[in-house]
Amino acid sequence: MLGAIAGDVIGSVHEHSGTKTKNFLLFVEASQFTDDTVLTVAVAERLLRGGSYVDWYHEYFHAYPEAGYGSSFIHWAEHRCREPYYSWGNGAAMRVSPIGIACNTLEEVLAQARASAEVTHNHPEGIRGAQATAAAVFLARSGYTKADIKTYIEQEFGYCLSERLDDIREHYCFDVSCQGSVPQSIIAFLEADGFEDAVRNAISLGGDADTMACIAGGIAEVFFGGVPDEIASQTLAVLDERLHGVVCEFQERFADRLTRGCT
Rank of each mutant, 00 (worst) to 15 (best):
H62W: 14
Y64E: 06
Y64N: 07
Y64M: 06
E66Y: 11
E66M: 01
E66V: 00
A67V: 10
A67L: 09
Y69F: 15
Y69L: 08
G70C: 11
G70F: 09
G70T: 13
G70A: 10
S71M: 09
S71D: 14
S71G: 03
S72L: 15
F73P: 07
I74W: 00
I74E: 13
I74R: 13
W76L: 14
W76V: 00
A77N: 08
A77T: 08
A77G: 08
E78T: 14
E78D: 08
E78Y: 00
H79F: 08
H79Y: 10
H79M: 09
R80I: 09
R80H: 15
R80S: 13
C81D: 12
R82T: 14
R82I: 09
R82E: 13
E83L: 11
E83M: 06
P84E: 04
P84C: 01
Y86E: 07
Y86M: 05
S87D: 06
W88A: 11
W88F: 15
W88P: 02
G89H: 09
G89Q: 09
G89S: 15
N90E: 01
G91C: 03
G91W: 03
A92Q: 06
A92T: 09
A92D: 07
A93S: 14
A93I: 07
A93Y: 04
A93G: 06
A93T: 04
M94I: 15
M94Q: 13
R95V: 04
V96F: 07
V96N: 06
V96K: 05
S97Y: 02
S97R: 02
S97D: 12
S97T: 15
P98L: 06
P98Q: 04
P98E: 04
I99G: 03
G100T: 14
I101H: 11
I101C: 11
A102Y: 10
A102L: 11
A102H: 10
C103K: 15
C103Q: 14
C103V: 05
N104P: 00
N104Y: 10
T105I: 01
L106M: 11
L106V: 05
E107G: 12
E108K: 03
E108T: 00
E108A: 09
E108C: 00
V109K: 05
V109L: 02
L110F: 00
Q112K: 14
Q112G: 00
A113R: 02
A113M: 03
A113C: 04
A113W: 02
R114S: 14
R114Y: 15
A115W: 02
A115K: 14
A115P: 03
S116H: 05
S116T: 12
A117N: 03
E118G: 02
V119W: 01
V119P: 02
V119C: 11
T120G: 08
T120H: 07
T120W: 08
T120A: 13
H121W: 06
H121K: 06
H121N: 05
H121F: 07
N122I: 10
N122S: 15
H123S: 01
H123T: 02
P124V: 01
P124R: 01
E125T: 06
G126T: 09
G126H: 04
I127S: 05
I127T: 08
R128D: 00
R128P: 00
R128M: 01
G129R: 01
G129L: 02
A130G: 12
Q131A: 07
A132I: 06
A134W: 10
A134V: 12
A135D: 03
A135T: 15
A135G: 03
A135C: 14
A136K: 04
A136R: 03
V137T: 13
V137S: 11
F138Y: 15
L139D: 11
A140Q: 10
